[in-house]
Amino acid sequence: MMTSTTETPARRAMRLKEELAKWTFLAPALLFLVLFFGYPIVKNVMMSVQEYTTRTFYTGEAPWVGFDNYIAVVSSSVFGTAMLNTLLFTVGSIAGQFTIGLALAVFFKKRFPLNGVMRSLMLLPWLLPMIVSSAIWKWMLDKDSGIINEILGVVGVDAVPWLTSTNVALAAVVIVNIWLGIPFNMTILYSGLQDIPDELYEAAALDGAVGWRAFRSITWPLLRPVVSVVLILGVVYTLKVLDIILGLTDGGPANATVTLATQSYKLSFANFEFGQGAALGNILVIISLVFAVVYLRVSHAEKED
């Protein structure tokens, strides 16, 4: 006997109800994404191709200028410096945050008294508001009364103009950002280490693979998916760091710490050139997307090999 494959009206109605229920639950999330992510992105793109100034808020007029805003920000004398500073700031911050965070994650994987308390204390820099952290560090790095130079003076080192010298200001900002990013890296990497079975280390120890050999043969290969997430999120976050730099140096001295993010902010909210600020912000978004795509492709190719 052949079974008919025709869907009955009752079954069709049930399937439609199930689909409707799915979309009912998804609707709030989709609406949230459209309103708070989709609209700002589209609006920013539109502003970048318009002459959007303070006058626009009163008249509603924003003449179309095409790519003039992009040309203006790229040809600006500050763009090259901002691009180089962004690169140095990002590479230095990520290298320091990741290296120290991974070392601390491996350290805290070992069981010892007060392990949990110490890990909790390590999260404090991450929990403090950025503007508070920058204010504290600005006081600490002050040339005349900062605690850092006081300590250096004890060991016979002359006071360093951390935030007022074009030679060391960027390095000082990188150090502060490393301090802020260590807890995030440590927490995520520590979670990844917890998923690696201890039996693998015990079996490797029988073959003499301990210490660095165990890390290279077991820890690193199994931790790489987590490492990819940490690095991508770290780079995207670091590229848009704004408040720390503004709080410490305001992009100075002499543009020594200006980045694409701070320049985009100044164009929009200091010069009120919202179109150019939006254009520079879009360039920053494109750089972040390109890095994420390239890194994921390289990681995927290495896994296949």
Rank of each mutant, 00 (worst) to 15 (best):
M1H: 10
M2C: 04
E7G: 05
R12H: 06
A13M: 13
R15T: 14
L16K: 06
K17G: 11
L26N: 05
L26M: 15
L31V: 13
V34Q: 03
F37M: 13
K43C: 07
N44E: 15
V45R: 02
M47Q: 12
E51F: 13
Y52H: 10
F57H: 09
Y58W: 15
G60M: 08
G60D: 09
F67L: 02
D68I: 00
A72C: 07
M83T: 13
L88N: 06
F89R: 00
V91P: 00
V91R: 05
V91A: 15
G92W: 07
S93P: 03
I94Y: 02
A95F: 13
A95P: 05
G96C: 12
G96A: 12
Q97D: 04
Q97S: 09
Q97E: 12
A105I: 02
K110P: 09
K110V: 13
P113D: 10
P113I: 07
V117C: 09
R119Y: 05
M122Q: 04
M122R: 01
P129C: 05
P129S: 11
I131C: 09
S133M: 06
W139T: 12
M140G: 11
D142Y: 14
K143T: 04
I148Y: 13
I148C: 09
I151T: 05
I151L: 14
L152W: 02
V155S: 11
G156N: 08
D158P: 07
D158T: 10
V160R: 03
P161T: 06
L163C: 09
L163W: 12
T164A: 12
T164C: 10
S165W: 09
S165T: 08
N167G: 08
A169S: 11
A172V: 06
V174S: 03
V176R: 00
I182A: 00
I188P: 01
Y190I: 01
Y190C: 01
S191C: 05
D198T: 14
Y201G: 01
A204S: 14
V210H: 06
R213C: 03
W220T: 04
P221G: 06
L222Y: 10
L222S: 05
L223Q: 02
V226W: 10
I232A: 02
I232V: 15
V235A: 01
Y237R: 01
L239N: 00
K240F: 15
V241P: 00
D243M: 04
L246P: 00
P253L: 11
P253T: 11
P253K: 03
T257K: 00
Q263P: 05
S268C: 08
E273C: 04
F274S: 03
F274W: 14
F274C: 03
G275A: 02
L280W: 14
L280R: 02
L284V: 06
V285S: 10
I286M: 08
I287R: 00
A292K: 04
V293T: 15
L296N: 11
L296P: 06
R297W: 15
R297L: 12
